[in-house]
């Protein structure tokens, strides 16, 4: 067998899941999950026990699909999961270290198991260990690695065979803040600059915001929502913090005429505008002029002789949206 025997369908880079149902016992863990992904950073969010890891295992072909279909890199996972795995990298949350081996030995070993020639695997193991920042520790037995080093080692082993997709299960689990940032930087680099598809399973919203363009939200085995990470900034309902002086009553009436909801928070007025009701805000199907809300408030202030000291759009955090979804 030659190195080129690793057969990955480079033309097909997508992951397609169609009405996936799965359960380890009679209790279903995944219920009718359907989605399709193109390469890029994708966050898989959900509370504990929502089926994130199980979904990743289905995508890897480690558990059999009971009903529905999973197609990864052009391979039906019920038929040719092994071929698909040539193009997939997996970083498990727990364990994932084979004791008694050096870092470079472990990564090269797993490279060989992926079908790489021994010398290529060893050479590549050195490269990816440099990339993840373990160059100086690569000859040490991995049993003695710190938690942060183990996470990096697991990332390295998932990269050694140059996969097209990386499935990362809680990659920042157990890391100190600095270690977390550096691991997220690596993942972001892979997803944004190196052309790898990354599915990041986590319950840490900040990790998803740092790395992903898109999120899938799971709850109790069901795909609850799918949206882009910065979709919040493109929602028609926008909240503004307003502070000023002058004829506040007229200003409030003007805003009410725009359909705005007004609340008070300390000295601030919290103005919630629905851009659907603002003239000239629409900029296409589901698109709004980002400046439309600000311009509308400025217009009302000018016409009501109200001097603005502060006008700032309050960002909608991913956390707010996530909790709204999950708790809904």
């Amino acid at each position: 067998m030659r190195g080129s025997a690793i057969k990955v369908n480079h033309a097909a880079t997508t992951i397609r899941v169609d009405d996936l149902n799965f359960g380890y016992t009679s209790e279903p863990v995944l219920k009718g999950v359907t989605f399709e992904l193109e390469k890029g950073g994708v966050g898989l969010l959900g509370p504990n026990g929502s089926g994130k890891t199980t979904l990743l295992r289905c995508l890897l072909g480690q558990v059999g699909v009971q009903t529905g279909q999973v197609t990864v890199l052009g391979h039906d996972m019920a038929v040719s999961a092994r071929l698909a795995r040539c193009g997939l990298g997996w970083m498990p949350e727990t364990g994932g270290i084979i004791p008694g081996m050096s870092g470079v030995g472990l990564v090269a070993y797993l490279g060989e198991l992926s079908g790489m020639p021994a010398r290529d695997a060893m050479q590549r193991a050195h490269e990816v260990l440099h990339y993840v920042g373990l160059a100086d520790e690569r000859y040490r037995k991995c049993d003695g690695y710190s938690q942060g080093m183990k996470q990096r080692l697991k990332l390295a082993q998932s990269l050694v065979h140059d996969p097209q997709w990386l499935f990362l299960d809680e990659p920042t689990s157990g890391l100190d803040p600095r270690g977390r940032v550096s691991v997220l930087e690596l993942i972001r680099d892979l997803a944004w600059n190196k052309g790898l598809g990354v599915i990041l399973s986590t319950h840490l919203l900040a990790d998803v915001e740092a790395v992903c363009r898109e999120i899938l939200v799971l709850r109790k085995g069901e795909l609850l929502a799918r949206q882009e990470v910065d979709a919040g900034s493109r929602q028609p309902r926008q909240v503004f913090e307003v502070e000023g002086f002058g004829d506040e009553d007229t200003f409030r009436r003007g805003l009410a005429d725009l359909g705005a909801e007004i609340a008070e928070e300390q000295r601030l007025l919290l103005v919630t505008l629905d851009l659907n009701r603002v003239e000239g805000a629409a900029a296409g199907e589901g698109q709004w002029d980002p400046a439309a809300g600000v311009n509308a408030i400025l217009g009302v202030a000018a016409s009501s002789d109200y001097a603005l000291r502060r006008l700032r759009r309050r960002p909608v955090s991913l956390a707010d949206e996530f909790y709204d979804l999950v708790e809904a």
């Binding site: 080129s4 790489m116 021994a118 990269l159 892979l190 190196k194």
Partner: peptide, 22 residues
Amino acid sequence: VYDRGYTHWQPSDRRSYPAWWV
């Protein structure tokens, strides 16, 4: 290598062995 960052692997013509052998 430490200046190169992540690079994609170019498969060589070297022989690779089946997993059971490895």
